[in-house]
């Protein structure tokens, strides 16, 4: 049996601000993880990634990040993505401050 596909979001850093951004279903870049599109199909994930990578004047370092789908939206499965979605732990800066 092939390994089950882990759902993904498309994420990157914004070119101008440098902060973490996610791709929403309507193709907007959004700042909050709960607004990101969760992709459950591997082929679609690859296509969304290619589309996003083509937007080089908006985003840097585009990649697919593993997520668990929940009612509250995508939830990171790895702590690195959790920190990206929240901000640093030593100051109330980054996403957590933007609320």
């Amino acid at each position: 049996m092939p390994k089950a596909f882990t759902p993904k979001v498309v994420t990157a850093n914004a070119l101008l601000e440098g902060d973490v951004i996610y791709l929403a279903a309507d193709d907007r870049w959004v700042r909050r993880l709960d607004e990101a599109e969760i992709i459950t199909d591997e082929a679609i994930a690859q296509l969304r990634l290619l589309d996003a990578q083509a937007r080089a004047s908006e985003a840097v370092g585009v990649y697919l990040a593993d997520m668990a789908p929940t009612e509250a939206g995508p939830q990171p499965t790895h702590f690195r993505e959790e920190f990206r979605a929240t901000g640093p732990s030593n100051y109330h800066h980054g996403k957590q401050a933007a609320g």
């Binding site: 070119l15 080089a56 840097v60 980054g94 996403k95």
Partner: peptide
Amino acid sequence: RRISGALTEDEFKPLRLMNGLYLQLHAY
């Protein structure tokens, strides 16, 4: 030139690094 799109990130990255500018987890 990077902001206007005349330079790609691959072209810009070595130039910004030469001037001490990294892209980190949450910001530059």
